[in-house]
Amino acid sequence: MAAAKSEVQVRIHHLNCGTDCPLGGRLFDGVSKGLTGRLVCHCLLIESDQHGLILVDTGYGLQDVACPHAPPSARITRTMRTILNIRLREEETACRQVERLGYRCEDVQHIVLTHLDFDHAGGLDDFPQARIHLMGAEYDAAIGPRHGFVTRNRYRPAQWGTADRWRRYGARGEKWFGFGAVRDLEGLPPEILLVPLPGHTWGHAGVAIHRAGGWLLHAGDAYFYRGEMREATRRCPAGSRAYQMMMEVDRKARLENQQRLRHLSIAHHDDVRILCAHDRTEFDRAIEGRLL
């Protein structure tokens, strides 16, 4: 079964938990007119009437901001700071945004991760009470040997807290619109699923949330640009296309999953809204309540 009627009411806040301004302008975001583009770190804060506060990804964290020039062995490598031209701002961290909504960071009880890249997991330690949910394949890849340029730069163990908070999953259960899915995440409502989408990383996953009006799928880095969804032919600026290729671990799997998502976004447009982690226009539309 693809979808069941939701009984648990959720409210979703769209948070930008980090800004990158890579050289290349519209070659990355499709709209900038200057020399630099603007990419966001689109995270979700879910208020559940029975399960408290739930984060989907964390973006950059307070310690990333406090130590912007840490040595390469620490939180974000100099290489990635340069490639992405990262702008670290305390007010953009998930922790500070949660506080501005009137909550404490300790009120976040669960974090569901699309993957463990430095720009998705930097805020984990800002939420010491939270149980962290992710695919087991992602955890294994992240804690294993970090050989090669991409692996050394993407996974930053200094950003992560103790392992006793981690809940790791393998794909199981009934399908979700033809995709494998992980249902019944420990301590979370049945309306929140992990949807494995490997390719960008070995354990990359989307996070599907059923709410009034249908499903919302946070597809993480399964795509980077809005033109890669909702249209029969893929469109993606050269800079974003090149970055996706640089960071992928399995091109065939990444492109196949992206194609399947593109089909989903067209065939089930009335049932599923899809967003990615870094497209600024998608984020702005979500804030305005007009996500396509």
Rank of each mutant, 00 (worst) to 15 (best):
M1N: 10
M1Q: 10
A2W: 01
A4L: 14
K5S: 10
K5P: 10
Q9E: 14
R11T: 13
R11K: 14
H14N: 11
C17F: 05
C17R: 09
C17H: 05
C17M: 05
T19D: 09
D20E: 13
G24D: 04
R26T: 02
G30T: 04
K33S: 12
R38P: 12
C41Y: 02
C43Q: 12
D49T: 13
H51S: 03
L55H: 01
V56I: 14
V56R: 08
T58G: 06
T58Y: 10
G59A: 10
Y60C: 08
G61L: 03
Q63E: 14
Q63R: 15
Q63P: 03
D64F: 00
A66S: 02
P68S: 00
A70R: 10
P71T: 09
S73V: 04
I76N: 07
T77M: 02
R78W: 14
L84I: 07
R89H: 04
R89S: 12
E91T: 09
R100P: 11
L101R: 05
L101Y: 02
Y103D: 11
E106F: 06
E106G: 12
V108R: 12
Q109L: 15
H110Y: 12
H110P: 11
L113N: 02
L113C: 09
T114M: 10
T114G: 10
F118T: 08
D119H: 14
H120S: 11
A121H: 03
D126Q: 10
F127H: 00
Q129P: 09
A130L: 06
A130D: 07
H133Q: 00
A137V: 03
A137Q: 01
E138D: 08
E138M: 07
E138L: 00
A141R: 05
A141L: 06
G148W: 09
P157Q: 09
A158Q: 11
A158E: 11
W160F: 11
T162Y: 09
A163G: 09
R168I: 13
Y169G: 02
Y169Q: 03
R172W: 00
W176C: 12
F177E: 05
G180S: 15
G180M: 04
A181L: 06
L185G: 01
G187D: 13
P190C: 11
L194N: 07
P198R: 13
W202R: 15
W202Q: 15
G203W: 08
G203Q: 12
G203R: 02
H210I: 00
A212P: 05
G213N: 03
G214V: 06
W215A: 15
L216P: 13
L217H: 13
L217S: 06
H218S: 15
A219R: 07
Y223W: 08
E228S: 14
R235G: 04
C236G: 07
G239A: 04
S240E: 00
S240Q: 01
M246P: 01
D250I: 07
A253V: 01
L255P: 07
E256C: 05
L264V: 08
L264Q: 09
S265F: 01
A267C: 13
H269R: 15
H269E: 13
H269Q: 14
R273G: 08
R273C: 01
I274P: 09
I274V: 14
L275N: 02
C276E: 12
T281V: 15
F283C: 01
D284E: 15
D284V: 03
R285C: 01
R285M: 08
R285H: 10
A286M: 02
E288D: 14
E288F: 05
G289W: 03
L291P: 04
